[in-house]
């Protein structure tokens, strides 16, 4: 530190005066920032946080007891099955999408540039097509007079059409179809972020492509894989259109169950309880998994 000289104005030298000036500009900036951010902030507080909080709060106002709606939910085997089925469908969809996504993204990221850009566009296009349209396509394929049944009868595997629609398998196939493009695009980004010299070092030290992939690329990609898995899991867990079209009433999941309680049975307490369970599971999954992803990142050591 240099001793303050006599010729300079005090305000420029003394730390206290400086902070006062800084504080004034800082306050002004904070004020400007808040003014610009406030319309979006207010919209989210008024139309998202308050209504969702009201829905969750509503489940704790039952005259039969504070957690009566939750006891109601979990005492029925049918309702427990709905929750379990939703979980199972989301988990299987996530695992299959992850496996298919990793291999495809690996091949795409290793392709020559022009092939790569075509493959990326081909993965983006299904994403731009709506959920209803893409689920509907699987109704044409899996229906009783659908393409797959016609084909199976034509090659003589079966005489009568097989009931494939309205099964858990149908829901999972369509969900995998929905989320594989998303997974491919997320994982291409993840794989391209892995430094090339690390991979080169592995192969120049004698690792073959398989062991380079298993021992170098995969561990480095794990945090990204978790992010992709969380995206797919939460989206499948809360989906409505696909289980509605391909699972129907037989394969009720949380989304379709919420709609049925609210709009068919007019049971708003029940619907709010289902909504609250969905919110808690979704947010808990995101928080826990992003924390794990951060811890598993070998580059962050």
């Amino acid at each position: 530190m240099v001793e303050s000289g006599g010729d300079y104005p005090r305000s420029l030298i003394e730390p206290g005066a400086e902070t006062a000036l800084q504080r004034a500009t800082k306050d002004m900036k904070r004020f400007a920032g808040w003014i610009m951010a406030s319309p979006a902030t207010l919209a989210l507080v008024i139309f998202l946080i308050l209504p969702v909080a009201a829905t969750i709060g509503y489940t704790f106002t039952d005259p039969d007891g504070l957690i009566a709606p939750y006891i109601w939910y979990f005492e029925s085997a049918f309702r427990r099955t709905v929750l379990w089925r939703t979980f199972e469908i989301a988990a299987i969809t996530t695992i299959i999408s992850l496996a298919v996504g990793v291999v495809t993204a690996y091949v795409v990221s290793k392709s020559p540039p022009w092939v790569k850009s075509i493959l990326i566009v081909l993965a983006v296009f299904p994403l731009l097509t709506g959920v209803v349209v893409r689920s509907f396509a699987w109704m044409i394929i899996l229906g009783r007079n659908g393409i797959l049944n016609n084909f199976l009868q034509w090659i003589g595997i079966t005489d009568a059409p097989i009931g494939m629609l309205y099964t858990q398998g149908a829901v999972i196939v369509a969900m995998v179809y929905l989320f594989v493009p998303l997974m491919i695009l997320v994982l291409i980004g993840v794989l391209e972020n892995i430094p090339d010299d690390v991979v080169q070092a592995a192969s120049s030290l004698g690792a073959n492509p398989t062991s380079t992939f298993m021992q170098v690329i995969l561990p480095l990609a794990t945090p990204g894989l978790i992010v992709g898995a969380v995206l797919v899991f939460t989206a499948s867990f809360t989906s409505y259109a696909t289980p509605h079209l391909l699972g129907g009433g037989q394969q009720m999941v949380m989304g379709t169950f919420l709609h049925q309680r609210a709009m068919v049975a007019f049971d708003w307490v029940g619907a709010s309880t289902i909504a609250a369970i969905m919110v808690v599971i979704t947010i808990a999954t995101v928080l826990v998994m992003t924390r794990i992803a951060r811890k598993l990142n070998p580059m962050a050591v």
């Binding site: 139309f47 998202l48 209504p51 969702v52 009201a54 829905t55 509503y58 939460t234 867990f237 809360t238 409505y240 989304g255 919420l258 709609h259 609210a262 708003w268 619907a271 709010s272 909504a275 969905m278 919110v279 979704t282 947010i283």
Partner: peptide, 12 residues
Amino acid sequence: VPEIVMGFSLLR
């Protein structure tokens, strides 16, 4: 927040 919960809460 699950979209379906958002829609239901906005309705309520």
